[in-house]
Every structure is written in structure tokens, then in C-alpha cells.
């Protein structure tokens, strides 16, 4: 008998082991939901799957009586749009500042302390300031995401640039490169896959800030909807929305990973990743 640390499940068995906990959760939910509904058919806390399906059908496939929109899809599009713009702007700023910080000591001396200071400000604490300055529209939500994740991304990018072996930078100079050429041919292409990796890491925080901003001031969006129907204890909407957000988060993460593997095979071949 091998030691436990040396025993590995076979592939189908591994899948089975992975699925079991989800399966148990669903069974537990159904059991608890049935028990509560048997006692009080109007119970809202743990709705039956049938009422969840009914609520989702109403939101996703019937136009809203008030605005004529398909609420669920409108919410999804609005939220993804804010997330994409917020994360995209953050990534772009982080790439530019992180690379400059990492490669040029004068820029680093100038900007690094400021970025460290900004990264220590709790973003939620300045949300009121954002609402006052940018109003209650799209801008303040996007800025919240950007303020929340950009400092982390910049510092991570700077670190990744500094991790490029000094030998490479010296070698490039002996090949006749100037500072700009070293940035565009040696540094930038090497930190791009790392940028994607840190964006993936910061997506969790980005979703957090997005939903927080939507919850406080918005007229649509996944976070807005959840906090709106909370007043009516509409668990039949909240639960599928949470599930949907989780699924979207997973899809975005997966897409970024695939994109990175497709664009930068050299990076993923030499740094095997445990997915």
C-alpha cells in the first residue's frame, strides 16, 4: 500500500470526486426547500426550482411591462460592459506605468511611493467622493473598479519587469538597442502574459467593486437587481443571479487563460500551470 500522498485518482474517478460535493449541495437544498415549503407554501427563503425557473423565465424571456426590456439580459450587458471598461482601462494604465516604473529608475523613484500610497486607500471608503465628483452615472462605477485594482496591477507589473533577468537587458544593449527598443522588444512582450495573469487574479476584486457600486447607485446591472429584489425577499431571483455571476466570472477567467495560451505559447510551455 502506497502512502496517501503518493496515491492519485484516475481521471474519471477524479471527475466523480469533483462533482460529488456539488451534487450533495443540490440534494441538501432540495431537501431543505421541500421541508420549508411543506410547512408554509408561501415561504420565500428557499424557493423550489420550479419557482426559480418561473422567475427567471419572466426576467429573461418576457419583456418587462415597465420598460419593455428583457431585464436579465439588459442587466448582464450593463454589468459586463462596466466590468470590461473598468478592467480594460486599469490594465492599460498598469501596463504603461508598470513597464515605465520597472525599466526606468527615474520614473520609479518618482512614481513608486505615490502608487504604494494610493494602493493603501480602501476603495470603498472613497466611493462617496467618486459619486460626488463623477455623479451617479457610469463614470463613477468604472472609476471605482479602476481605483480598486489598478494600483495592484501596476505594482505587479513593475515587479514582473524587475524579474526579467538583468542579463537580457545587458545583452540587448550589446546588440545595439536603445531604451525604447528594449521596452518594445524585450520588456513589453515578456510582461504581456503576466499582465493577463494578474488581470485574472484581480477579477474577483473587480466584480466586488462593480456589484458594490451597482448596489448603491444604479438603474440596471446584476448587482443592482439583486439588491433591488432583496426588499421583496425574492430569493427566486437572487439565487439564480448569484449563480449567473459566478458562471460569468468563471467564463471570463477561462477566456483570458485560453487567450494567453494562444497568444503566448512560449510562456505557458515553460511555466506549467495547475489549472
Amino acid at each position: 500500500m502506497k502512502k496517501l500522498i503518493n496515491q492519485h485518482p484516475t481521471r474519471p474517478f477524479r471527475w466523480l470526486l469533483g462533482i460529488i460535493p456539488f451534487f450533495i449541495l443540490v440534494i441538501l437544498y432540495i431537501g431543505a426547500s421541500n421541508a420549508r415549503l411543506a410547512e408554509n407554501p408561501n415561504d420565500k427563503l428557499l424557493p423550489a426550482f420550479s419557482s426559480i425557473a418561473e422567475a427567471m423565465n419572466r426576467l429573461a424571456f418576457e419583456p418587462s411591462k415597465r420598460s419593455g426590456e428583457y431585464v436579465f439580459w439588459q442587466d448582464t450587458i450593463s454589468s459586463l460592459e462596466r466590468l470590461a471598461v473598468g478592467v480594460g482601462v486599469s490594465a492599460l494604465i498598469a501596463l504603461v506605468l508598470g513597464v515605465l516604473n520597472g525599466t526606468i529608475p527615474f520614473v520609479r523613484a518618482n512614481l513608486s511611493p505615490l502608487i504604494t500610497a494610493i494602493s493603501l486607500v480602501p476603495p470603498m471608503a472613497i466611493l462617496p467622493i467618486l459619486f460626488i465628483v463623477f455623479g451617479l452615472g457610469e463614470a463613477s462605477k468604472i472609476v471605482l473598479i479602476a481605483i480598486g485594482i489598478t494600483p495592484f496591477l501596476i505594482r505587479d507589473m513593475q515587479q514582473r519587469v524587475l524579474e526579467i533577468p538583468g542579463e537580457q537587458i545587458i545583452k540587448a544593449q550589446t546588440l545595439g538597442a536603445n531604451t525604447w527598443q528594449i521596452i518594445v522588444r524585450v520588456v513589453l512582450p515578456q510582461v504581456m502574459p503576466r499582465l493577463i495573469a494578474s488581470v485574472r487574479l484581480s477579477l474577483g476584486a473587480a466584480w466586488l467593486f462593480l456589484i458594490a457600486a451597482e448596489a448603491i447607485a444604479s438603474t440596471d446591472g446584476l448587482g443592482y437587481r439583486i439588491f433591488l429584489v432583496r426588499r421583496y425577499l425574492s430569493m427566486d431571483v437572487i439565487l439564480p443571479y448569484v449563480l449567473w455571476i459566478t458562471l460569468l466570472a468563471f467564463a471570463v477567467d477561462y477566456a483570458l487563460r485560453q487567450l494567453s495560451q494562444w497568444l503566448y505559447p512560449w510562456f505557458h510551455d515553460q511555466t506549467p500551470e495547475r489549472a
Binding site: P165, E167, K171, Y264
Partner: peptide, 14 residues
């Protein structure tokens, strides 16, 4: 003017 070959890390991995 001067070329260099280090023991390691002197080619570009990308």
C-alpha cells in the same frame, strides 16, 4: 562594441 555570452539567461525566451 562588446558582445557578451553569459552562463545563462542571455537569450530572449519570447
Amino acid at each position: 562594441q562588446r558582445g557578451i555570452v553569459f552562463q545563462r539567461y542571455s537569450v530572449f525566451p519570447h
